[in-house]
Design a protein around this nucleic acid. Structure first.
Length: 604
DNA sequence: CTTAGGG
DNA sequence: CCCTAAG
């Protein structure tokens, strides 16, 4: 009788009914994993878009500016970007801009508030606008996730103008412009630059730097007007594109709540979206996946997630390249070798997204490793094989040197400078109650730990990435992108790079072990999903499989001698509980099995 | 998707 | 942690 009671009421004597599925879906917070995926995907797409623009530049854009630009820029500017007749090659400028609008002042770096919103350099490089320091931007990106950049901002030219103006007036400048000059063959109108990667290729231009100069505040009149992005939104095609594409990015731009609201709806039918997403690729058999990982660059796969674009417009080149490293200094970067190009794209993306990313390039199924090759040497051009070109945006094991180049060493731009991965400190754990056996059945056992995935430091970009993308309002390349170009670029999800790599090892902390033990004591050993929900719901990096595995190892650990144990020692008390609970639930399962299979009983 | 178990 | 089979 006593046994029966224990069976019915669980290990500690109270009943723990299964969590209803309906309730689960509501309860379950949208996994950040899922969010991360989305953000990374968008980031990747964003990158690919940029890169695609570089490569898929409209042929006509060389000798004739794309109509969009032509319509909206003045002659002077136009001429600036035209290839000079007496040159075999000319340089095109590519501008990466992200504008952030409507940022509550409270979130701003105090010193930055009054500065103009757009950091764009003039064509003669004389008066680059003030740029916000990146820390500020990063802060915004991380802590101000409520920004909601909506495609409606760009629904009409007027609206667009208004929006931009508003940005410029009220907000702030969390804007950055990365402009790179890219050598183009006049003949082929393809990227052709092959400057040796030398220090000389990175020009550092100092401008008169007067902190109090009104120039910092005053927008550049002529050029600034010329560069003002808003008129460039004039092209209806582009705007349409933006509007339609933007929807893909919009959800991820919402703040957590909104996002959750969105995804919960999805979870209504399909709970555990995060886990589902997480495994979407895993469902592909291993061998096939490897294949898939490295060679599937076709456009056809995963149609729904092909392209994620961001508002864009044409902006005239002619401006010297600038890198918003710090006020008063900008870098004139001439893109040379392929690696430089790649790296520059990466830098630009990192600048926008907050860093920590690595841009991988895959061409014809192979990862391009020789960074010294030029694009043409690699065989990449705008008109061939582009469908076999892909990019990966992957968490960098080293922190991207995000805008941290000392002005005296701009060459750092060109070299990876591996740094040890900065780990976030472990999540603080405070035991709420020492008597873990006595908590209320309904209470979430461990609200007291791992509220967030600090361990995602493995890819620090995750944070800045998914928080800062929302602020990325405009990704601008100088050449106007043809709508079809976007469609051609094989945009791949970051899932690939993500799953291709083994997850980093994250040893369970004692706190986690305790939570796990506690949950298993109550729920048993066969309900890992519930355990996950109950005790690790907020620990995104712990899947129920992880928990199950950990339990497995815990049981093993508890059975071996303390001398044989490795890693952070688990208190013996916990191990004892592990054994006890394990024994109990094993017995429980056996009983259940007997119940459901009485014939087995008879046979015995 | 979850669970269970081997690798 | 990964991978997979099975339900």
């Amino acid at each position: 009788m006593v046994l029966q009671k224990r069976l019915d009421y669980g290990f500690n004597g109270y009943q723990v009914p299964p969590i209803p599925r309906a309730a689960r879906s509501v309860r379950r917070r949208c996994s950040l994993k899922r969010k991360t995926d989305d953000k990374q995907m968008c980031a990747f797409d964003l990158l690919a878009t940029v890169a695609g623009k570089l490569l898929l530049e409209d042929k006509s854009s060389g000798k004739n500016q794309p109509s969009v630009v032509e319509d909206s820029i003045n002659k002077e500017e136009k001429n600036e970007d035209k290839p000079k007749e007496d040159q075999d090659c000319y340089e095109r400028n590519f501008l990466f801009t992200d504008l952030v609008s409507e940022i509550p002042d409270s979130n701003l770096c105090p010193n930055e508030v009054s500065r103009p919103a757009s950091g764009i350099t003039t064509s003669d490089g004389s008066e680059p606008e003030q740029l916000v320091n990146d820390d500020c931007k990063l802060r915004l990106g991380i802590f101000n996730p409520t920004l909601n950049v909506d495609s409606s901002n760009f629904e009409s030219e007027d609206e667009s103008r208004k929006q931009i103006k508003m940005d410029r007036k009220s907000s702030v400048l969390v804007s950055s412009v990365d402009s790179v000059k890219f050598p183009f063959c006049k003949d082929h109108n393809t990227p052709c630059g092959s400057f040796p990667i030398k220090r000389d290729n990175v020009k550092l231009v100092d401008r008169d730097d007067d902190e109090n100069s009104s120039e910092w505040v005053k927008p550049i009149t002529r050029n600034n007007k010329a560069f003002r992005p808003s008129p460039r939104f004039g092209d209806r095609k582009i705007r349409k594109l933006i509007a339609s594409k933007h929807c893909r990015i919009a959800p991820s731009m919402k703040d957590d709540e909104n996002y959750n609201a969105d995804t919960e709806r999805g979870n209504y039918l399909n709970r555990n979206n995060g886990l589902k997403r997480q495994r979407s690729l895993r469902d592909i058999p291993f061998k096939k996946r490897r294949l898939y990982d490295y060679s599937s660059m076709s456009n056809s796969d995963e149609g729904s997630d092909g392209i994620c674009s961001v508002p864009e417009n044409g902006t005239n080149g002619g401006a010297p390249s600038s890198y918003p490293a710090r006020p008063g200094v900008y870098y004139n970067i001439i893109i040379g070798g392929f690696g430089m190009w790649q790296r520059t794209v990466m830098e630009a993306v990192n600048a926008v997204l907050g860093g920590g990313l690595r841009v991988g390039v895959i061409f014809q199924g192979k990862k391009i490793r020789d960074d010294n090759k030029t694009l043409l040497q690699t065989g990449i051009s705008h008109d061939n094989k582009v469908d076999t070109l892909g990019f990966t945006l992957e968490p960098n094991s080293v922190h991207a040197p995000r805008r941290s180049f000392p002005e005296d060493r701009p060459v750092q731009l060109l070299h990876d400078s591996p740094q040890p991965l900065a780990r976030y400190p472990p999540a603080p754990f405070t035991r709420s109650a020492p008597d873990t056996q006595s908590d209320n059945p309904g209470s979430n056992i461990n609200n007291n730990f791992i509220e967030s995935d600090h361990d995602s430091a493995a890819s620090p970009s995750n944070i800045s990435l998914h928080k800062s993308i929302p602020q990325s309002k405009a990704l601008v390349t100088v050449p106007t992108l043809r709508a079809d170009a976007l469609a051609v670029v094989p945009l791949r999800k970051s899932k690939r790079s993500e799953s291709a790599q083994r997850r980093i090892r994250r040893p369970f902390t004692v706190a986690e072990v305790e939570a796990l033990v506690q949950a298993v004591e109550k729920l048993g050993t066969g309900r890992w999903r519930d355990v996950k929900l109950r005790a690790f719901d907020s620990a995104k990096h712990r899947t129920y499989v992880d928990l199950k595995d950990k339990w497995k190892t815990l049981v093993h650990t508890a059975r071996i001698s303390p001398q044989q144990r490795r890693g952070e020692p688990v208190p013996q008390e916990l191990l004892d509980r592990v054994l006890t609970a394990h024994a109990f639930w094993s017995q429980h399962q056996a009983k259940q099995h007997l119940k459901s299979h009485p014939e087995t009983c008879l046979l015995l």
